[in-house]
């Protein structure tokens, strides 16, 4: 009797393959002397893997010498026949193979980061500014390193660098998360420096970052998903269409962007909204920014709870 006996259950498990087909790091592993019935009756090494996108998965390790494995080792995925059920169903599974020589140091929990993710115009910057003034003794905004031109409306949230400097910082590992926002007018890179984030931790505060999908995933990859208190900010509205029209209204009424730039932002926003649906696991909270005061109260509560914990 196999643990997955029903073809339908096996089929559902196979649907998960796409999400497990990623490189990752071994968090732990064990060699089972007697695997469950239905699986090949030989020693089986199973590992808990932290995948590239911050999710975790369990999978068999393709190795004949489990003694050579170690926690922190990098792995790459393979799709293999796992076993054949009593009904003759061939069950495939994602297995992992250790990549020789690559061992990540054991990650020590560094501290919490509050991240705000959301489409352009949803109010990330406003929320972030108000938070870091209202509870400045507990939380502090992390400056965004960017290659884009300074604009008259910019506050002190940006640190401007040239594209060349940006890529040097990234290569040296000073910038630990970076992303390029698609734009037809200029090459725009945004990123965060580890020294800024770690400096804020040293002062006993919680860093607040404004992220989008790329930055969020890289931050989670660098400090561990557990470190990120990830909040998605969404515009009010029941359907995507209503949400987008809200954003359009806000972007127009703040009067900072040209129509061309707004059109570009709207295109990106549509992708962002899709991202919330597909990558729900990257968010601890999804917050609708309808009433600014309530959003601030909620986030304040989260930060104070982190500080106490």
């Amino acid at each position: 009797m196999s643990t997955i006996r029903h073809p339908a259950a096996a089929a559902r498990a196979q649907r998960e393959h796409r999400s497990k087909m990623q490189e990752g790091t071994i968090l732990s592993f064990t060699t089972i002397a007697h695997p469950p019935e239905g699986f090949p009756q030989r020693q089986r090494t199973v590992a808990l893997i932290e995948l590239h996108d911050g999710t975790k998965a369990l999978g068999e390790m393709l190795t004949s010498t489990p003694d050579n494995l170690c926690i922190g080792q990098q792995v790459k995925p393979h799709r293999r026949l796992s076993h054949i059920t009593a009904q003759g169903l061939r069950v495939y599974a994602i297995c992992y193979e250790a990549v020789a020589g690559k061992v990540a140091p054991l990650r020590v929990f560094p501290g919490y980061i509050l991240s705000l993710t959301g489409p352009s115009g949803v109010g990330k910057t406003t929320v972030c500014t108000l938070l870091s003034t209202k509870i400045g003794e507990y939380a502090q905004r992390v400056p965004i390193v960017t290659t884009r031109e300074p604009k008259p409306h910019d506050g002190d949230e940006y640190a401007y660098v040239t594209a060349r400097e940006f890529h040097m910082l990234r290569k040296r590992g000073d910038i630990i998360a970076a992303t390029r926002i698609p734009s037809t007018t200029e090459e725009r890179w945004y990123g965060y420096r580890s020294q800024d984030i770690e400096g804020i931790w040293k002062s006993g505060k919680i860093p607040i970052v404004i992220t989008e999908m790329g930055l969020l995933q890289e931050l989670a990859g660098h400090y561990g998903r557990r470190s990120i208190l990830s909040c998605g900010l969404l515009p009010p509205g029941k359907s995507k269409r209503v949400m987008l029209s809200h954003l359009l209204h806000r972007l127009r009424s703040r009067g900072r962007d040209s129509e061309a730039s707004i059109a570009e932002r709207m295109q990106n926003a549509e992708k962002d909204l899709l991202f919330f649906e597909e990558q729900r696991h990257l968010f601890d909270d999804l917050i609708i920014n309808e009433d600014l005061e309530r959003v601030l109260d909620l986030l304040k509560g989260r930060i104070l709870a982190l500080q106490e914990g």
Binding site: I4, A9, A10, E16, I32, P35, P36, F39, R44, A93
Partner: peptide
């Protein structure tokens, strides 16, 4: 978890 854990061939001691 019969979908996230059992398919890997884990047992409880595992």
């Amino acid at each position: 978890d019969s979908e996230k854990e059992s398919p890997s061939g884990l047992t409880f001691p595992g």
